[in-house]
């Protein structure tokens, strides 16, 4: 099923209100043929469950991992992925685009 952006932010609220630890990742900048537009969200919980997408599947794994640190210490992080980046290449972000993703905890 396709999830709209609505569902993702509502899910973030519902998860938090249900007592889960939650982080929200947001695409804040894109260059080239990035697969998801600026403003796209991914919601992640402390168990690594997630909903939504920031890249159409290429870098979600890395974002979910980084989100665990954000959930742990509460400090927002800016992540950057692109073909020039070894991590992103490993993550399969080979479509030629670059994205910046802001990850923050819901408090």
């Amino acid at each position: 099923m396709l999830t709209s952006e609505d569902d993702i932010l509502l899910t973030a609220q519902a998860w938090k209100q249900a007592g889960r630890q939650v982080a929200i990742a947001t695409v804040v900048e894109t260059w080239g043929s990035a697969p998801r537009p600026v403003g796209s969200h991914l919601v992640i919980d402390e168990g690594g469950s997630f909903l939504g997408s920031v890249s159409g599947g290429c870098v979600e794994g890395e974002v979910v991992t980084e989100a665990q640190d954000v959930i742990e210490d509460g400090k927002p992080r800016m992540l950057e992925f692109g073909v020039a980046d070894e991590t992103a290449w490993r993550a399969g972000f080979s479509c030629g685009g670059r994205i910046k993703v802001y990850v923050e905890r819901v408090d």
Binding site: L9, Q13, K16, V106
Partner: peptide, 14 residues
């Protein structure tokens, strides 16, 4: 993001 901001944002959307 503060939960109250997220809830307010979702309320505006609704």
């Amino acid at each position: 993001m503060r939960l109250d901001l997220l809830a307010a944002l979702n309320a505006e959307r609704a």
